[in-house]
Design a protein around this nucleic acid. Structure first.
Length: 468
DNA sequence: ACCCTAATCCCTC
DNA sequence: GAGGGATTAGGGT
């Protein structure tokens, strides 16, 4: 039921815990003054109170001449924050580790992401909300009535309207197709092979943001000091930051991106348009300390899982088992994301049982993206790269200089495999010739590359694969 | 127009 | 004070 229209058009100096407004002592003015515009003026001095004027732009307070246009007197609404993909990835990562924030976690995250605590709190709140909705929908669409574990179902996205779930589809085990949400993991993953391969959170650096926007509007809007947060927000909307040449992005959900190296991002070239989320054009709002910040890529839904009895992703050949692996009733290996997954621990990927979308090599243990799905349809290119130097933070799939590291004398990234054809998780290669247009890079290709290097050298600390 | 989601409102605990 | 549910609204496709 629609709530009575709250007094949203005017700034309210304090929240009402109840629906009905009550008289305010400070508004007990002579009738001729008893209107919201009075709030514009200091009761005592009569001076213009700029704090009631929106938008609030630090150091850019409207001049008196501009007041006529600014006297909108709508309730101030904080400038909508557009999180960067890196920030979302980090938030998602933390969300997987715990849906609720402790004060210390909040402070840590906000500082690390250069976000206000309010933004982080709101994000978690909205994320929980989204999770609940998705979880409910997941239950509703669940074939076997077996709800996914909350953590794993976190990123399961419901089928779009008009689209049936994968129940009853050719997905033999009935698992639903997963797709990334905006918070979903990326199409590109990096795996930490060795201990410090990026799972260790960066030592927290003091936040450059001195003032955290709070939910207290009064505090917020009366903040007189320069606030980089808002500065960035407002200014970034008035000019376009340099867009990185690549869109897709991401970081490993477990924090490879947050490694001791300060982050590992492997930005592939722009993905096929079919893989680009409509939000992928978002501008960068914050000056990232990292040279690469990339846009989140959304996987198209409705993945059609192809059957192939020859693939068995439970084969330990592919991966060591995750340390905190458990089994769900159907015997599917799962991993409950936990702090045990990082930091300072190896990042293991749960093996993906055949036709199970919940998790895979291509996936964070959160199980929300299975990049193998449908990539044969998108004709994405694949590069499997192994970093031999975890200290490199700027190596990318598309950075051929970095990959080859030509000229630097210090090999940083070696391309172990590069498929020029499509990647097909459940298909066999139709040709062994990578130059053949019909060549399909399979999971085998990836894992061969991976296994060839995962244990051979202590220097091989990063493993990533990119879909270009 | 529609979608996603940050931000807000209102309420409960 | 923090949480959830409902809602609004910004910004993108």
């Amino acid at each position: 039921m629609a709530q009575p229209p709250p007094d949203q058009n005017f700034y309210h100096p304090h929240p009402h815990p109840h629906a009905h407004p009550h008289p305010h002592p400070q508004l007990q003015l002579p009738p001729q003054f008893r209107n919201p515009f009075d709030l514009l003026f200091d009761e005592r001095t009569g001076a213009i109170n700029y704090n009631y004027i929106r938008p609030y732009i630090p150091n850019q307070l409207p001049k008196p001449d501009d007041l006529s246009d600014s006297l909108v007197m709508r309730r101030p609404r904080r400038t909508r924050t557009t999180f960067t993909s890196a920030q979302i990835a980090e938030l998602e990562q933390h969300f997987l580790q715990g849906r609720y924030l402790t004060s210390s976690r909040l402070a840590e995250l906000s500082a690390k992401l250069t976000l206000g605590t309010a933004q982080v709190k709101i994000w978690f709140k909205n994320r929980r909300r989204r999770h609940k909705i998705q979880s409910d929908q997941q239950k509703e669409f669940s074939c076997d009535g077996m709800p996914l574990s909350p953590s794993l179902s976190t990123t399961i996205k419901s089928e779009p309207q008009g689209s049936a779930s994968s129940c009853g589809s050719n997905n033999s085990n009935g698992s639903t197709s997963s797709s990334s949400s905006s918070g979903g993991p990326p199409s590109l993953q990096s795996l930490s092979i060795n201990g410090n391969g990026g799972s260790t959170p960066n030592p927290l650096t003091p936040s450059p943001t001195p003032t955290t926007p709070t939910t207290n509007l009064m505090d917020h809007y009366s903040e007189p000091a320069f606030n980089p947060y808002y500065y960035n927000n407002h200014h970034s909307t008035h000019h376009h930051h340099h867009q990185p040449p690549h869109h897709a992005t991401l970081t490993h959900p477990y924090g490879c991106s947050a490694g001791a190296t300060g982050g590992q991002y492997y930005p592939p070239p722009p993905p096929p348009s079919s893989l680009q989320h409509h939000h992928s054009q978002h501008q960068q709002q914050y000056h990232s300390p990292h040279p690469h910040q990339f846009q989140m890529e959304h996987k198209p839904h409705a993945a059609v899982i192809k059957e192939d009895p020859d693939y068995n992703f439970n084969n330990p050949y592919y991966m060591r088992m995750p340390p905190t692996a458990g089994s769900n009733p159907s015997g599917v290996t799962t991993v409950e994301p936990s702090s045990a997954m990082s930091p300072n621990s190896e990042v293991y990927e749960p093996l993906t049982p055949k036709n199970d979308d919940n998790s895979s090599l291509c996936n964070g243990a959160g199980g929300n993206v299975d990049v193998g799905d449908n990539l044969d349809e998108t004709k994405a290119k694949l590069r499997v790269i192994v970093s031999s130097n975890a200290n490199r933070t700027d190596d990318t799939c598309s950075n051929t200089n970095a990959i080859g590291n030509e000229g630097s004398g210090t090999p940083a990234i070696n391309i172990m495999e590069e498929c020029t054809g499509a990647f097909a998780k459940y298909q066999k290669m139709t040709t062994a010739d990578p130059n053949d247009p019909n060549y399909q890079c399979t999971m085998d290709t990836i894992m061969h590359a991976y296994n060839n290097h995962r244990n051979t050298s202590a220097n091989n600390q990063q493993f990533a694969y990119c879909f270009n």
